[in-house]
Design a binder for these strands. Sequence first.
DNA 1: TTTCATGTTCAGCA
DNA 2: GTGCTGAACATGAA
Length: 260
Amino acid sequence: MPELPEVELVRRHIKAMCLKRRIDSLEVLDSAILDGVSIEQMHGELDGHEFTRAERHGKQLFLKIGKGWMTVHLGMTGNLTCMGAEHIPPRFTRLHVHFLDGGGLIYEDMRKFGSIGLARTLSSFIEERGLGPDALNIDEDEFIDRVSRHKRNIKTVLLDQSVLAGVGNLYSDEILFQCKIHPLALSSSLSTMQMQCLHREMQRILKKSIQVMTDFDRLPKDYMLKNRRPSAHCPNDHGPWQTIKINGRTTYLCPRCQRF
DNA sequence: TTTCATGTTCAGCA
DNA sequence: GTGCTGAACATGAA
């Protein structure tokens, strides 16, 4: 489910379907997904209230409830869905917010790497977690400043949520592919033009993915994400992909387009 | 049966 | 302090 574009679509879905609906009750089916809060605290903040705003920072979601916020991170397999009264909660539902109108907000998460909690303000939460600027908001100067500060391979830096928030394993591969930069290149050694490319392509790719509703089949034909499979080929030179492990994460690249 | 998975965090080591 | 590697978390799918 979750990198910035996927989370943004969830935010829009919640905003369109879930705001201004009075909450009747809350059902926590697996308290393991609660992060730093008790079931009682969740009841105290949610019961009888309504969500009034849906915001996002990187991969993190925030639903305004009363004077505070419910925080949601989708982890690896999490999803939030608004449902009508007639719908049956899916198999891996971990939390179910029941609205007075009969419908509900469902958090499902097979692997339970996601989490739900409470926060007073967005800025306090972002600071506590050490999250960098949102990948779609960060401007070129700050991007270059923060990325070039590190002496690590560029893929690791793009994935570091404290440098900037929102880019995950799949999109980092796409960004580097579009800029023809090898994922193991040292971040501090990149030229200004390469840094500008990374910033520009990052925002272009994330926006494009949101635009096609993260349906990779609808992405332009020169995108890696359309063809990110062992059996597929680089759309530029039609040669095979190379896969390597960086920080334990599978990394796709074209060794001919992305020279080390 | 084994391997892998769009994320985050932590221990251990150089 | 900086950076890297591997493991852990929980569970289904190929």
